[in-house]
Amino acid sequence: MRAFVEFSQQVLSGAALGCIYALIALGFVLIYKATEVVNFAQGELMMLGAFLGYTFISLFGLPFWLGLPLAVVCMAGIGGLLDRIVVRPIVGQPVFAIIMVTLGMGFVARSGASLVPAWGVDTHVFATPFTGKVASIGPLVASHDQLAIMTTTAVLVAVLFLFFRYTRIGIAIQAASQNQLAAYYVGIPVKTICSLVWGLSAAVAAVAGILLAPVVLVHANMGFIGLKAFPAAVLGGFGSIPGAIAGGLIIGVVESLAGFYLPEGFKDVAAYVVLLLVLAIRPQGLFGEGLRKKV
């Protein structure tokens, strides 16, 4: 019985962290599907979102429920601008050039953040209304931060699902990511849609950053968590939104279990071990679509 409770406890905390991976992976997938660009700076977008949240809420003293949407909207704007100014001019260049540019964006974001006077290279404690409270669910315990992460992720995923399924813009985004040329031919302004998707991904990243901040503290290198979200996206079949969510959760849980049951050091490679195993059996990823995208 005790062993089972321990196990469940690890699954619970793994799922909470997995939600963060899932949200970042979701950003990878959205951008990749719409623009065929793999944005290696997705983790850094999350970091910037966390810093903006920290600035508005802890430094400026805005109420959490005002500071959060403000940071998210700012990040959406930054994401859209990044697409417009940095990414759009290089679309159509060789893949490695695009990869270098997004990697470079990550470097610039990290050093840029540490140059901001109030941010610097220090870690910052960022308290949210959830911080420090703990709930018990039967024999299990979960911090309110963890519960907030899981609830918000669930709500966000549901909202995105409805958005893609039922709104004019959501359907247009899907159309543009399935066949760009045909999207132009039905009157969808594909470039604007791409900027919109970058904005959306940056906004989701900001939410992830602000949820994660109380757990891991805010610092310029917190975006490295993107290195774990990337295998999550690949695991799910890079290009599938449900896949990104499932991939994130799986990697979070496996990592947490590995950290608890296996010797030290296994935790950090667990994500990649799972990825290799899954890809060996299902090369297209868990939710990978058999259909190849048309040019």
Binding site: I171, A175, A182
Partner: peptide, 15 residues
Amino acid sequence: EVFPLLTVRENLIAG
């Protein structure tokens, strides 16, 4: 050049 993973109805809506 239809949108392969949209339903027929969604293709029309996209149009």
